[in-house]
Amino acid sequence: MTFFKNTYWIKRIAIIISLLIVSFILWNTYIFFQKFKQEERGKIEIFAAAFKELASNSDLNENTNLINKVYQTIEDTPTILVNKNGTIDLHRNIDSLKATNPKYLQEQLNIMKAQNEPIEIEYFGVTQYLYYRNSDLLYKLKYYPLALLLILALFLTIAYMMYKSSKVAEQNKLWTGMAKETAHQIGTPLSSLLGWIAILRSENVNEEYIVEIEKDVDRLSTIANRFSKIGSVPKLEQQNIVDITKSAFNYLQSRSSKRVTFSFTTSKSELNSNINTELYGWVIENLVKNAIDAMQGKGSISLQIQETPKHIKINVSDTGKGIAKSQFKQIFTPGFTTKKRGWGLGLSLSKRIIEDYHKGKIFVKKSELGKGTTFEIQLEKV
């Protein structure tokens, strides 16, 4: 118990430290961004002062080296000089081809107005306003925190997926162990039952009773074999789908309420596919049992087998309460159930048997609340 408590707190401390580190990086990035922005404005103000000095001093008109040197410090920063009337007098560091379009220049000016306050330049009664846009480096620095957050989100997503995957693997391992242990435990009384059947025969007990007991013993043996195959790759053999399906269907029909009507139809008497007989029969039984439960023991169940050039389709339909469309995929999730009593494993096991072991498909073909549901299984035809 102490170990789990320590692990609990270690995880939370690690999360808190990670959040503090990320917050520290984001805060420092913000401080650096603001400082760099101030430095950039300082350069623009120096450029504006040099421009004013050049415009107001006639001695400097013959030598523009000063303003050129100052200009080199902002050569990555787009600028637009606007007069008092709002007309653009000069622009720098803007695409020369696009700048021929007055509309483009106006768009750039609007961007600059939104980003930074203009710098006023006055000389000889002339008033101009110097607008500037953030440099490319400042743009990159602005979106750096967003990139950092995206990387962090990606990292957390991967960590969560790995954690979830490990939990699912752990749960699957647990279910597999329980299934195999169940199969092992069933094996012991089965051996005893076979011995008792032999004794009953030697005592000249009515053969009809013994035959029925043998059927139940065979059924228990089948269940034990099914559980023993969970977690291991089953052996697939070419079998007649029609016979295997009909056998599982008839077994439940003989043990169900007379108020349930059963209907079995097939396009051919022989349709072959590579399957594991016990596991496939388990899927059919799960679907039929769910159908009986959905009808609350009264209604009709129909099973149809059809073929396409490449596949065999098995449709199991009922006249039960139906399934909401939003739950078509959710019902195959382990643990999900709409019953008051149930573990929610039947359909998830069926999906694993059909899709993982037999490389087929199983899904809700159609369903309508209050009218019934149709499940479809697709298997490759051989």
Rank of each mutant, 00 (worst) to 15 (best):
K164Y: 12
F33N: 11
Y163S: 14
G187V: 02
I119Y: 01
V260W: 01
I331M: 06
F124G: 00
Y123M: 05
N250W: 01
Q34H: 14
K246G: 00
E40T: 02
V233N: 11
T87C: 07
I213L: 15
Y8I: 12
I284Y: 01
T64P: 00
N272V: 04
W27D: 00
K43I: 12
Q253N: 15
R133N: 14
K359V: 04
L19P: 02
T127K: 14
G372C: 01
G231T: 09
E40K: 05
L220W: 13
L60C: 05
N206M: 05
Q304D: 11
V70F: 09
L220M: 15
I244K: 05
Y144C: 02
P234V: 08
V316C: 03
F328L: 12
I121Q: 08
I88M: 09
K113V: 00
T373N: 05
L200H: 07
R133M: 09
K235F: 08
M161H: 08
L345V: 13
Q330H: 11
E368H: 03
T265V: 09
K329L: 11
L279G: 10
A99P: 04
N250G: 01
T64I: 14
I301T: 05
F262T: 03
I25Y: 07
A324G: 08
K229F: 09
L349C: 02
P145I: 10
Y123I: 04
I354H: 06
L54A: 10
D59W: 00
S300K: 12
T7S: 05
D318L: 00
I80T: 01
S58P: 09
I80G: 01
F51A: 00
N93L: 06
W175V: 10
S269Q: 14
F332Q: 00
I186Q: 11
I15A: 14
R352M: 14
F3Q: 05
Q239G: 03
K229H: 06
E307C: 05
F227K: 04
N6V: 04
V217W: 03
I292T: 10
K340E: 12
T337L: 01
